[in-house]
Design a binder for these strands. Structure first.
Lengths: 168, 168
DNA sequence: GAGAGATATCTCGACGTCAAGACAGTACAC
DNA sequence: GTGTACTGTCTTGACGTCGAGATATCTCTC
């Protein structure tokens, strides 16, 4: 189950072993696959959202608001921390979402530097529909793994992610 | 080991379960982690390459050539398939790499539509040094996992990736 | 050997992101 | 209260990518 299952990354690793036999390229077995899978995932997401007239970046912002619960309102700062983008990017995103009437901006009554961004009814409906769709596709994508394997995979990934979540 | 390890994704999943208790959001346990890990990985790579004056995109192209073995030469088409970018992007990348004297372009003697791109000596030295460095950091990043776990993880990821690799 | 379709590469304009920095407002020590 | 450091948001310019389309060449069929 390991020796011959052969995917792109196995080929890539084999090529390295020929070209740089002095190096231990085993880390690629995990990390190249993570990168490649993420790339494919992006495409699948893009396809799922296209049916709801949403771009992946729009979805990211809308879901952050959706997850916050009523009244579906967060500051740009909270949004950029949730989506791992820079502040300039977030300003730009909010501008475009507001123009599309999916979110609304209002001054923060408690901090005059601040702004609060909230979902409109349209935004709420759109993100709920798109999320349903995304989950259906993700489930499909994971259908190659039994429940046990899925949980094991999740747990292993959590371990790798841990150093990034806590420090600083 | 599963209930309380709590990372960002666990929190995200918990938030969804509150807000949309009607949905089965378990797929996120795997796929959100893949995306997030990939994002962190990109940053780590960027940091590793910066010491060798390389951008990630430069590294991607140079390694594809390096892996090809002597004479370290591929067509733009082969390069874009190896790096999963569009042809316009690849043209642009090759232009800039050629300007930096890391690769060389020459007409394909066997196909007059074609071009062949090869590593210069500088390019070869640069990519080898950067790759050493990258592997050192990746090993560090994986140090939280035993060998057995690493292999299990690689194998699970391979399964998920399989559908993307074959059906062209 | 002519034509149709496929392939290889490049060009161009639009777009989203980032990094750096500007600016207004807040918090806290004194 | 005043000064200093910090925080939250927005502005700007440069950059890399994409998608669509242009051009040249090759391949295959008849």
């Amino acid at each position: 189950m390991t020796e011959d299952a052969r995917d792109e990354v196995d080929r890539l690793v084999a090529a390295w072993r020929t070209e740089r036999p002095d190096l231990d390229v085993e880390p690629l077995q995990v990390l190249s696959r993570v990168s490649r899978l993420a790339k494919h995932l992006d495409r699948a997401r893009r396809a799922a959202f296209a049916e709801h007239d949403l771009e992946p970046w729009e979805f990211d912002v809308l879901t952050a608001l959706r997850r916050a619960g009523k009244p579906y309102e967060l500051s740009p700062g909270a949004l950029l921390r949730a989506t791992l983008v820079t502040s300039g990017t977030m300003t730009n995103r909010i501008d475009r979402l507001a123009q599309a009437r999916l979110v609304r901006r209002r001054p923060d009554p408690e901090d005059r530097r601040g702004v609060l961004v909230s979902l409109t009814d349209t935004g709420l409906a759109r993100v709920d529909a798109a999320f349903d769709d995304l989950l259906r596709r993700e489930r499909e994508l994971l259908s190659g793994l039994e429940g046990t394997d899925r949980r094991a995979l999740a747990s292993l990934l959590r371990t790798l992610l841990a150093p990034f979540d806590s420090p600083h």
